[in-house]
Design a protein around this nucleic acid. Structure first.
Lengths: 346, 346
DNA sequence: TTGTATGCGTTATCAC
DNA sequence: GTGATAACGCATACAA
């Protein structure tokens, strides 16, 4: 097993200098077509692949995108990764994972990862994207980053959907289907979208002239178990809602599960709506109405936005030229996915 | 924003040579305690973090573990990542993702990624772990790798559960619950586990003296939609099974969905069993009986196995010392998770 | 126990 | 257009 070919081997074989090889590899101009062809042939013959490590060291770029996440749902994470990877593939970038630790100094851990890995850019997911402490430190050391799905801090660029508008649309759908006794399950406060989605719900209710019943507004943790818990609370009340809008699918699933357990029919006895369009929402019986976020596309766009700001080897020597401004934000369309779980009451 | 401190800065501040700093950072012996303290203080003061790129280039190690996957299910992928990341954290390793492309020369793409990224080790997931062409090329260039969840090729080390035994146990459970008309849904042929799980099913049936009905053995693609499809086939027959053992949960979910659609009750009219214990299996109503693989633990063990063989900077110069032998395989325990979907027929 | 010098495979700065 | 040559930040023989 001969150790992999280097740029020197290619240069030797092509009879040119390594700089010329470098030019060809990096698609720089000012190389005669004939020279380029010769080099390319040599590259092919030796099966030469540039070393990321060396490129990183010499060029100040790691060709690595970092994905920072904390406690994200499976499908969200995977979809996002898919989108990021698709964007990475073309530009020969790699994706490195950076999970938040459970440690007390979560932020310190994350920053350490950034400093040692030195990714060229970071994709920040909620709730990290809503963490002002973290974002400010990121900004301070001058690393490029972009938030996905809401940027609660208002700092740095972000790619997301109009959560409030989407939640409002779903609530309006419930109302149009004839439901008026609608409960709402909020997400955790650390997620900026929790408030946004709730706002949408409230707006729809107000527009329809329906009073929001505070007894029917509860808070969950964005997971299945908390969905079960809040369902127990909501459905045990003497006067209970006949529809529940959960601010994500996992909680909605918990609600449906609990409703079935106590013998309720969906949507006959209880309509349920979710948010996120996880695979589960269509696999459940009956299918769960939900809001589809184009997560994969969000990941891809976020990454491309990131690379656009990175490509001209801007090592951010001047503090002014740090990150793309927040006004390079990107708002993608959502889809209202209507399934039997919210069909009109009989 | 001062550019990050380097080993030189630390050496200067501590009044020692860079080699000494290097010794301290890498926890090498032969450093006086006092010197070590001085250096550590400087490291702390300057907030020094070694550059992965430089370490990689100079030391021949990238401190990166690669995760190669193709078409894996969300929860499998995420659980595995969790395990790998846990193992990585302690040793300050990073995790880089390497998805298989849809291109014709999938293997070539993967190998290109390996050559340019130069991970210190690779975690191979099915069906890639069962792909002899890929595995042989990996072996040839001398990269360390370990397969998870079956190694169909028999080459290289692997961490997995006894799939056949697990499938057999589940089938036996169905039989003990009183079911005899049991259908089976195989997985795709490219997955080595498909055959293994089927074997377990057959063994259980034979032991119980029950004839396997070939009309009730069908093949799916390990996803929800194929579960729906095979359910349509199986349940449309004049003589149909009253229990179906799907070789993974996603297909089982499809079967349950279709069963509900045509008005069947589970398990009263049809018992269903799956394999994998995806989150969905407990979220469905009724809960789905399944086999739990300790995916997260598998990922962790696989990674630790990988690092054990990597740590002594063995750059595999001699062809003999390539990978840990297949007998360093690891078989982890599985769990039979019994839920209402397979309760005894009435 | 500690330090010096060299090299890792690129990129980048200049000359030519 | 092209090519020497010096970084880049670290590891590692080899000295001391």
């Amino acid at each position: 097993m001969a150790s992999a070919a280097t740029i020197n081997d290619v240069a030797k074989m092509a009879g040119v200098s390594i700089k010329t090889v470098s030019r060809v590899v990096n698609r720089e101009p000012n190389v005669r077509q004939h020279t380029r062809d010769t080099v390319l042939k040599a590259i092919d013959a030796l099966n030469y692949k540039p070393s990321m490590a060396a490129r990183g060291l010499a060029g100040g770029r790691s060709f690595l995108i970092g994905l920072m996440f904390d406690n994200a749902s499976d499908s969200f994470l995977v979809d996002l990764q898919r989108g990021i990877l698709r964007a990475c593939r073309e530009r020969h970038y790699g994706l490195a994972l950076c999970p938040a630790s459970r440690a007390a100094d979560r932020t310190a851990d994350l920053m350490e990862w950034v400093k040692s890995t030195q990714p060229d850019g970071i994709v920040l997911t909620p709730p990290l994207s809503d963490d002002r402490t973290l974002v400010e430190q990121l900004l301070q050391i001058g690393v490029k980053f972009v938030s996905v799905s809401s940027a609660g801090t208002g700092l740095g660029p972000a790619v997301y959907i109009d959560e409030t508008h989407a939640a409002r649309a779903m609530a309006e759908h419930l109302i149009e289907a004839g439901y008026r006794d609608i409960g709402f399950v909020r997400g955790p406060a650390e997620h900026a979208c929790s408030e946004l989605r709730y706002q949408g719900f409230v707006e729809a209710m107000q527009s329809a002239g329906i009073q929001v019943n505070p007894d029917w507004v509860v808070t969950g943790a964005f997971d299945f178990d908390s969905g079960v818990e809040v369902a127990k609370k909501l459905l045990a009340q003497s006067s209970r809602p006949n529809a529940i809008f959960a601010s994500n699918d996992d909680m909605a699933a918990g609600i449906m599960h609990e409703a079935y357990r106590i013998g309720m029919k969906i949507p006959a006895d209880l309509a349920v709506a979710g948010f996120d369009d996880t695979p589960m929402s269509r696999q459940f019986w009956p299918g769960l109405s939900t809001v589809r976020q184009p997560i994969e596309q969000i990941g891809q766009q976020a990454t491309e936005l990131l690379m656009r700001t990175v490509s001209p080897v801007s090592l951010a020597t001047n503090d002014e030229n740090k990150n793309p401004s927040p006004d390079s934000n990107m708002i993608l369309p959502y889809d209202l996915v209507l399934r039997p779980s919210t069909e009109p009451a009989a």
